[in-house]
Computed example of a mutant assay.
Amino acid sequence: MLSVGTFLPAKADGGGVIAPDEHAVLLGLLEQTPGWEVVHGLDFRESHIRRGRVYCGDVCLSDLDVYLWHVDFARKPGSYDLDALLTLNRDTLVIPDPEQVAVAFDKHWAYLTLDRAGVAVPDSVLVSARNVEAAEPALAEWGCAVLKPRRGCFGWGVTFIDSFTTLRDIVGYIDAETTETRVRGVSQAASGRSFLLERFYPNSPHDWLGVTFVGGEIAYGFRKDGDRHARWNDTAWKVYDAGRGGGSVRYQEVPPSHTGLLHAARRAFDLPLVGFDVICHEGRPMVVDVNTGPALYEELFAAAGKTMAHELHRAYAAAVHRATGEQLQRSAR
């Protein structure tokens, strides 16, 4: 019997994205899974760690065989939420794997991972405030670029850059507002904060596509409505969600020209739930974002002839079965 803990809150709860009706069905399906003994509602964000063991109230999560989670959480380096998951992952099978999640939600590391998997991604350069001038040759070559928060989402902070002067001054402003210039009379070179500059590729909102994978299969594709489009000028735009609430989507079939790229991207991270944003530049699809906690839309599952709860249960059950099988194979060697 596997002891399985979960934190899969409904959309009405803080950070949850699962529709309430589907949430109740999902929890029931998990409880009925043969060979599982399930405890729900174990919020790792409210846990504490003692001697490398993770506790949620009186429950030691580190004693569980499996821990399933899907919720928004603090993503910055050094945040407690990520530390709790990474610590728990040393003793317990955590799904999704927080190490994979940490790579996938960081745009710099996500692009490197995808590029090495043969997936088309934007050209980019990573610099710090100490050497921002190193980005000037790339910007001169590209003409225009986009400055992106490495762990950002919903389009917040994504800034169009059309000159090195603009880039230099934005980096200088951020650094001046967030670091001390002198400490005990000794001047500091700069904060060392990294800045990800990504080549801007002209593209149309009509070709932008979001794709959500559940359990290794494409669940649905979608496009954002016009109220989620923010224009910098006549030719440059971004997806922007001021309320960070998702929504304003419509179902879209995934074209065959995209499927090979998308499946290669999915295999690069091998997460039970993952989403990708794709643009087309000169007829070529390109992944421009990875979503480790994709919004789950009941109406889009329905449009694809699926139900959210059953697809999520299939994904989690398959991930547990595969991972526990691999563990048994390793222990038998």
Rank of each mutant, 00 (worst) to 15 (best):
L2Y: 12
G5P: 01
T6D: 08
T6I: 07
G14S: 13
G15W: 02
G16I: 07
I18S: 04
I18Y: 01
A19K: 05
D21Y: 06
E22H: 08
A24Y: 08
V25P: 03
L26I: 08
L26A: 09
G28H: 05
L29H: 07
L30G: 03
L30A: 06
Q32T: 12
Q32K: 15
W36D: 03
W36Q: 02
E37N: 12
V39G: 08
F44I: 06
E46W: 05
S47F: 01
H48S: 12
Y55L: 15
C56A: 15
G57H: 10
L61Y: 00
L64C: 07
D65P: 04
V66K: 02
Y67H: 14
W69F: 11
H70W: 03
F73C: 10
F73Q: 11
A74N: 09
R75H: 08
D91K: 11
D91T: 15
L93N: 00
L93A: 03
I95Y: 01
P98S: 08
Q100C: 05
V103C: 10
D106F: 02
A110Y: 00
R116S: 09
D123F: 02
L126M: 13
V132Q: 03
E133A: 13
A134Q: 11
A135E: 07
W142F: 13
C144R: 15
A145T: 10
V146P: 00
R150N: 11
G152F: 09
G152P: 08
G155Y: 07
G157D: 12
F160L: 14
S163A: 10
L167F: 12
L167P: 01
R168V: 04
D169F: 13
I170P: 00
I170L: 15
V171D: 01
V171Q: 01
G172Q: 10
I174D: 11
D175S: 15
A176R: 14
A176V: 06
A176F: 13
T179Y: 14
R184E: 14
S187Y: 12
Q188R: 15
A189F: 10
A190E: 10
G192S: 04
L197A: 01
E198N: 07
E198D: 03
R199Q: 09
F200T: 00
N203E: 00
G210P: 02
G210F: 04
T212D: 10
V214F: 02
G215W: 01
G216F: 05
Y220T: 07
G221Q: 06
F222T: 01
F222R: 06
G226N: 11
R228L: 15
H229L: 11
R231A: 11
T235F: 12
R244A: 14
G246Y: 02
Q252G: 01
E253Q: 13
P256H: 09
H258F: 11
L261E: 05
L261I: 06
L261D: 02
A264G: 06
D270A: 15
P272M: 06
V278T: 07
V278C: 07
V278E: 05
I279N: 00
C280N: 11
P285R: 06
P285S: 05
P285V: 06
M286E: 02
V287C: 04
V288L: 04
N291V: 06
L296N: 02
Y297Q: 07
Y297I: 10
E298C: 08
F301I: 09
A302C: 09
A303N: 08
T307K: 03
L312T: 06
L312K: 01
A315D: 01
A315Y: 00
H321V: 10
R322S: 14
R322D: 14
T324C: 15
G325V: 13
E326N: 11
L328S: 13
R330K: 15
